Amino acid sequence: MRSARAAILALALAGLPPAAPAQTDPAKIARAAAQALRDAGRALDAAQGANDRVAALTDTIRAYEQGLAALRAGLRRAAIRERAITLELDAQRAELGRLLGVMMGMERAPEALLLHPAGPLGTARAGMLLGEVTPALQAEAEALRARLQEVALMRSLQESAADTLAEGLAGAQQARTALSKAMSERRTLPRRFAEDPDRLRALLQGSDTLDSFATGLASAGGTTAPDGSAPPDFAARKGRLPLPVQATVLRRAGEADAAGVTRPGLVLATRPLALVTTPVPATIRYRGPLLDYGNVMILEPAEGYLLVLAGLAQVYGDVGEVLPPGHPVGLMGGADPNRQAVLDPVAATGGDRRTETLYMELRQGGRPVNPSDWFTVTRAATRD
C-alpha cells in the first residue's frame, strides 16, 4: 500500500522542481566507452604517420575492441535496469488504478476530509497523523520520480549509442585493414630459425593429427640465426601470461564438447574479427592451414615450449621471425555486426555475441600442459 500511494502522488509531480538526472553505472560505463572510442579514432589518425605503424595500429585496434566491449556492457546493463524498473511499475498498475478511483471520489467531496466521526478531537488527531505521514509520502514520490527519470535516461542512452556504435565499428574495420597493409609492407623482423621447407612440407603430409604435427615440429628443432638473441625466462611467467585475444572460455582443458571429444587446450570464444597477438616474445615455427583447424599459428616462446593457436581466419608473419610481446599474429573470422544488430538484442545479450572460436594449446617437452596453469584465466574471462 505504501509504494502504491507513492505511485499515486507521482501523478502530480509535474509541479515539483526538476530532480537531477540519475547517475547510474550503465550510463557511466557507456559514456566512458564512447569517450574511449573517440580517443581510438584520434589514435587511428595518428597511427597512419607513426614510425612503427604495426605497433600503433595494434594498440588502436585494442582500444576499439575495449571501447566497443565496454559500450556493449553499458547498453546491456541499461536495458536490464530499464526492464526491471518497468516490470516493477507494471506490477503496481492494478493497485494504482483502484486507489486512483478512491482519490477521485474524495476530491468530489473535499469537505468530508474536515470531519471525523469522533468529533473535533478526532479531526485534530487525524490532521496530526496526516502531517506526519505526508513527508514520508513525499519522499516516496521523489524516489519514484527518480526511477521514472532513470528509465528515460536508459532509453536515451540506448538511442544516443547508435551513432557511437556505427563510428566505432567502422573505425575498427578501418584499423584492421590498415594493419593488414602495414604487415605486408613492414621490414623483415629478426629471425632465429631457418626452417627447411621440404622438411616442413613432409611433416605436414605425414601428420594426421595436431598432436603428431606439433610433436614432429618440436623434435625437428631449428637453426639459430647468428644475430638471434635468447628469449627471456618463459617458465618464470607461469600463471601470469595474458590471453592472446579478448575472449571467454568455452571449454577448459579436458572438458568434453557436445560430441564428447576432449582436448588438452582451451577453447576460447571471441567476437568476429578479433585481433590475436602473441602474449610473450616468441618465434614463429609454423603458420598456415593445418588439417581441419583452419589457419594455425605455432609459436615458440622458449626452447622446449610451443604455443598453438588454431582457428584464425588470417595470419601474419613468416616462419622463423622473432615477434615482440603483443605483436599481431592474425585475425579471427566472421564479420562485425551493423549497429542495429547490436542494439536490437541488447536486452538479452548486449550485442555481445562471441561467434568465433580459437583453440589454444601450450606444449612443453613435446607434451601438452594445462594452459589454465600458465595464463591469467580469471572468472571474468570465463564468464559468458
Rank of each mutant, 00 (worst) to 15 (best):
R5K: 12
A7C: 14
I8G: 06
P17D: 05
P18K: 10
A32D: 06
A32M: 09
A40P: 02
A43G: 05
A47H: 09
G49I: 10
V54I: 06
A55K: 10
T58P: 06
T58E: 00
D59L: 15
I61F: 01
Y64R: 02
Y64G: 01
A69C: 06
A70Q: 08
A73S: 13
L89Y: 04
A94Y: 05
L96H: 13
G97C: 08
L100G: 12
V102W: 09
M104R: 15
E107V: 15
A112C: 06
H116G: 11
P117K: 10
M128L: 14
A136G: 13
A139L: 10
A143G: 10
A146Y: 00
A152E: 04
L153Y: 00
L153G: 08
S156K: 02
L157P: 03
D163V: 11
T164S: 05
G171K: 01
A172F: 02
R186A: 11
D196N: 15
P197A: 11
R199W: 00
S212R: 15
L217I: 07
L217A: 10
S219P: 00
A225C: 01
A230Q: 15
F234K: 08
L243T: 01
P244N: 07
T248F: 08
R252F: 15
R252P: 01
T270P: 00
P279C: 13
P281I: 08
T283F: 03
T283S: 07
T283N: 04
Y293T: 07
Y293C: 03
Y293D: 07
A302V: 04
E303F: 09
A313Y: 08
A313S: 10
G320D: 00
E321Y: 03
G333D: 03
D336T: 00
D336S: 07
P337V: 09
A341Q: 15
A341M: 11
R363T: 12
P368Q: 00
P368A: 00
T376W: 11
V377K: 01
A380H: 04
A380C: 03
T382H: 06
D384E: 12
